[in-house]
Nucleic acid binder design. Structure first.
Lengths: 114, 114
DNA sequence: TGTTTATATAAGTGTTTGCTTATATAATGT
DNA sequence: ACATTATATAAGCAAACACTTATATAAACA
């Protein structure tokens, strides 16, 4: 079995996670840099538990990494995931989510750390 | 809105269809050339209605095209679908399904037409 | 015409999904 | 210590999903 390929089962699992508008947008946001949960909630205009539950799925699949900083939890893409090449290809082809983060910044809601 | 990008909603819909082991394998098979339903049933070792229902979903999304030839229906990838670039990127990165079709041929179960 | 073969569709069912509201946990600030 | 803020988790629920079995449709063939 040629291991340069991603197995069908695993690829399908990743695709399933990308197959939801909310999660795909979350990943698109993280594609332009790490974000904390409250920013994601603000941008997506969805309930905090809903966003947290989506993040849990992405975390369980190890598609995203988390980093705690004080009261915040910052999420970022796990670029060393076996299926990241696919994720990357997909994210490259959807609209850039950066401007949504810029809009957040304008409202003074962007979380700075370090 | 930059139309060189695939909208998030549409990308998510396609990803959802790819997010199932059976459908991803079906698309992988079609990636190596058109197949008729009975071949797909034979390769995937699943019930004919189940395969037909998966094909219907892919057809409804226009990810695949159908071509009737006598009693058979041949399916192929719709390479002009708006999200085909993504589909292509994904299929490129999963194991080649050609050998499964070759095995069919060895059993004399491959359908020839033209 | 009647039978076989290929495919689609319908109906039923248990499982999974994506939300909701409520609550728990943990760090921050007073 | 206590209130606030950020996040996670639990429980409940309607809708979507992926099968199953049964049946419909249509072409091929004896």
């Amino acid at each position: 079995m040629d291991k340069t390929y991603i197995e069908v089962e695993e690829a399908a699992h990743t695709m399933k996670l990308l197959g939801d508008r909310t999660r795909l947008t979350l990943l698109g946001l993280l594609y332009s840099g790490e974000c904390c949960v409250c920013e994601l909630v603000e941008v997506l205009q969805m309930s905090q538990p809903s966003i947290s539950q989506h993040l849990k799925k992405l975390r369980d699949a190890r598609l995203v990494k988390e980093k705690k900083k004080g009261q915040w939890v910052f999420y970022s893409l796990n670029t060393s995931h076996e299926t990241y090449p696919i994720v990357h290809q997909v994210l490259k082809q959807i609209p850039d989510q950066k401007e949504k983060l810029r809009a957040l910044e304008d409202k003074g809601l962007r979380i700075q750390c370090d």
